[in-house]
Nucleic acid binder design. Sequence first.
DNA 1: TTTGCATGCATTGCATGCAATGGATACGAT
DNA 2: ATCGTATCCATTGCATGCAATGCATGCAAA
Lengths: 214, 214
Amino acid sequence: MQNDVAHRRLRELILDGTYPPGVRLTEVDAAATLEMSRTPVREALRALAADGLVRTTGRGAVVVALDPDDLEDAYQVRAALEALTAETAATRQRAGRIAPADLAALRDLAIVTADVTREGRLAEAVGLNRRFHRRIAELAGNAIALRTLDRVWDQIQVSTLRSLQPAVRHAHVSAQHDELLSAIVDGRAEDAGRIARLHVLDTRATAQETAPRA
Amino acid sequence: MQNDVAHRRLRELILDGTYPPGVRLTEVDAAATLEMSRTPVREALRALAADGLVRTTGRGAVVVALDPDDLEDAYQVRAALEALTAETAATRQRAGRIAPADLAALRDLAIVTADVTREGRLAEAVGLNRRFHRRIAELAGNAIALRTLDRVWDQIQVSTLRSLQPAVRHAHVSAQHDELLSAIVDGRAEDAGRIARLHVLDTRATAQETAPRA
DNA sequence: TTTGCATGCATTGCATGCAATGGATACGAT
DNA sequence: ATCGTATCCATTGCATGCAATGCATGCAAA
């Protein structure tokens, strides 16, 4: 119970940049911060290590930043999985197994994301963008893919936090979102998969331009 | 340290069928079996839960079996990821970034796997088959994909343990392995990806024929 | 016989003590 | 001054005690 609390809160603190990559977390410090004993914190740190968010050295856990190569790998995995989920979602849509309200919600999410992005509210945009993509994975109804994607995305998010996207290509991204959305709505499974993959790899190129660090 | 031991040993016991799906593991029992205190065992059980191998109910952890739908989902994820790693491995091969010895080892593995399978030593064959596929993922050099695949494969293995493949289609499987191997050796990335995906989905169909259980 | 309830017990979750470990630091030797 | 070394201290890993929890069992009532 308190274990889950510790896991969730530490994850939040890492993903929102409060604990940026490289920060060292000791059990006692984290326990003091979260106002609980070492035991649940310890377990939370191990869980975060399993998630790939921290690397547990002998002396304390360090928030992970993927090096450029690993980041590239993570994007490849994400592309493969999002291609799968987009394709699956489109297939389900074609089979009439997706509720119209869900599709409408997805469309709204795309619109809001585009708006917020255009206005340059980057932090919000990052969150909305992730929600948009995640929603598609949810529509695919593949729980295992969803969990896996969440993990990969967490890792990417930590490593790209400090290099928030340059505001240049936003129109481009929104257009791709719309394409993807259309393909799903129309039930064009193959297209959806292809578009999703290319879109992810496209955003990867952007992210890669700015250098991470250990 | 002892924590890792507990994690590894329990994982082994689950994957080799000693603790089949549905078995209940309590901290004290497992601690007694492994001859250590509850603490490291507890952490190991949580790690196994994160791996998706056990489901931790309020009262003890239960070894997980995927229901048919989840198993299907797992195969879809595995297919997507193995398509990626096969394609990547082929690309690397084409770029001359794979050592001949590694390729030779892969080829040997395919041969041994085929032999053992033909002789009907199923338990060994399952292990070798997994090693063959894993080796390809290693050749792709994508650590994140490799970890992810390991997780998915663990889950699949638990759920299909008791339904060891009917000995019918083995020639078929070996032929597909050879095709995949050739595509990688020749650096035909697209082919490798396609073959890997179809191969995985093909074996899925086989596995699905036999019914799992909760 | 079945249903409701109370009580006991198995089991977990958390806190804390203690020993082991490894890194940093300070001091001495060359 | 630099290198080696010994000591110290931060920190982890493990064990264990204790309280909380919720399931099962048995008994009573309808």
